[in-house]
């Protein structure tokens, strides 16, 4: 039923697009977001049950440990998005750009997850407490999703939501995935026309996501190396 109502609204913004197709990229990003939360929770668990310290006293290369942990999470996110895309197609969604597009959406989802993986790990290192990490990350997760272009086109939403959506990373993740899905310039928060077609969305959003990943990544690397260094604090 939600689909019927929302479908009508979607058609106002993007004519000829059915709601399932509209929604699948948003779900892909949602999955990436939810999985990224578990990364921080995993780190807190390791800190709480002493495995973090155990790794620090072992001769393992520390960079390799954190890279390995992140790769495992990234792999899981990619796999989950693949499943979502598969289910979406079964339910009638259409990936205009085909298999290449599907891989592209997985890549966007993974790229998108970096900043939130970094963010949830920062929460973990800072709070060293499972509850705080879960609450902190989850509290953010839902507003981020709803105050973005994920579930409805921005032009049908109130002005204040449009305003928040403009600075919300989820908007950029969803728009990138959706542009690949529909092969259209779907982004409304920034007007870019330099590249033509879907690229007008993909290039700037990917740039934003790379930038975010870089900023948050630097933050988490700083915090992690501080937490794992032997310098007295």
């Amino acid at each position: 039923m939600f689909g019927n109502v929302a479908g009508g609204v979607v058609n106002q913004g993007l004519p000829g697009v059915d709601y399932t197709t509209f929604l699948v990229p948003a779900i892909a990003i949602q999955v990436a977001l939810a999985s990224a939360v578990t990364s921080g929770i995993g780190l807190v668990n390791d800190i709480e049950n002493g495995m973090f310290e155990k790794v620090l006293v072992s001769p393992m290369n520390r960079t390799a440990v954190f890279v390995g942990k992140t790769l495992a999470e990234v792999f899981r996110i990619g796999l989950q998005i693949a499943i979502i895309l598969g289910l979406g197609v079964l339910l009638g969604a259409e990936i205009t750009t085909g298999v290449v597009g599907a891989v592209g959406i997985m890549a966007v989802g993974i790229l998108f997850s970096f900043w939130f993986i970094a963010f949830s790990n920062m929460l973990a290192v800072l709070t060293r407490d499972q509850e705080s990490t879960i609450i902190g990350a989850n509290l953010l997760q839902f507003p981020l999703l709803f105050l973005s272009s994920a579930f409805l086109p921005l032009e049908v939403l109130p002005n204040w939501i449009q305003l928040v959506a403009r600075i919300n990373p989820v908007t950029y993740g969803v728009d990138a995935a959706r542009a690949i899905m529909l092969d259209e310039d779907v982004m409304t928060v920034l007007e870019v026309t330099a590249f033509g077609g879907a690229l007008d969305t993909i290039v700037p959003t990917v740039a934003v996501l790379v930038g975010l990943g870089f900023v948050f990544g630097t933050g988490v690397i700083y915090l992690l190396s501080r937490a794992s260094s032997s310098d007295v604090r």
């Binding site: 049950n49 002493g50 495995m51 155990k54 006293v57």
Partner: peptide, 12 residues
């Protein structure tokens, strides 16, 4: 070295 911390550190 082997190090056994004060808190039990195993992966449950």
């Amino acid at each position: 070295i082997g190090y056994m911390a004060q808190e039990t550190s195993i992966d449950p």
